[in-house]
Design a protein around this nucleic acid. Sequence first.
DNA 1: AAGCGTATCT
DNA 2: GAGATACGCT
Length: 336
Amino acid sequence: MEVETHMSSKTAEKISILVVDDNAAYLQVVAELLKKCNYQAVAVKYPIDALPKLQIKGDSCDLIVFDVHKSDMNGFKLQEMIAKAFEIPVLSMSADQKEGAILKGLKGVSVDDQRDKGLCTVLQEKKGKRAVPGKSAMKQRKRGKDNSGDLVLPTKSQIIWTESLHHAFLVAIHDIGFSKAVPKKIHEHMNVPGLTRENVSSHWQKYRNYLHRVTDASSIIQVPNKNLASRANQSTIASGMLVKHRQVHQENFGVQSSVPSSLIHTSTGYLTGNLQHLKNKGKEVEVVLDPVRNFSVFHKVSAMQGLQGIGDLSASSMNQGNDQPHQDMETEDNLQ
DNA sequence: AAGCGTATCT
DNA sequence: GAGATACGCT
């Protein structure tokens, strides 16, 4: 797995990119974006037009970015041909998960890997550069001198904690053991090229903050529900979140309703990534057990669509905040 | 002095 | 909001 990065482009040579997208608007947007980032962009609308461009440009094209449609076999063919004829990395864009799946089947390549392999990482490798400076800018600064101006600046980059990267992070913590986990160990365990210990430290901090938020919210009322209690010998429900959620919901109806409607805390559940379906006041809820710590974290009303609730363990939901000092909760919550 | 945790910055 | 950076402490 590679890290995905955002970076400001300060590369010496111009990297040339061929963009293929039959949506003219998108095509232009992407091409313009790339130009703004100081890449040389060549835009073509159809895959069929791509090949001549490649041949003309020879190996000066460093990357092909193109939109994939499941119906568009030309696109796949093109990809295959390019892979065979030229050694040019191809970055596929697709709005649809299913298209991604098709791609995966066709190429025998993990779509995740492709996605995780950020554009810039690919390009940097192509140009024989490091995606991320080995020494952090911070340490270099500490060393005293401001070398801006004369020397090559380490390219500023920002890693993106994709779901799969975050998952690797969680696995590392799990394997190490939560109490023994420290950035260095997590970093070593993850073993992801381009990922620095500082990256991990930062993420680790956010993750712990997230866990605290989540657990602090469990300032606690006893679960009256026997079904629930029988599964966990010390179950509690935090209504703080619920109250908060309601307030939010009332103030801002319809927005951000993916906030968990309440929180369950149990000392017994340790079921990696498991879901339990429980009954709570007639409403079915899903309980997501935190793979890292020995208690469950969230449950959600199952009516909330899709897998959103599971994302409570995911990178995407990790940072959404609730940093208000929590109020003493309403004990006559409807969970009573 | 490496590396951790927290605060602060972007 | 998400990630990087600064910094004090061990």
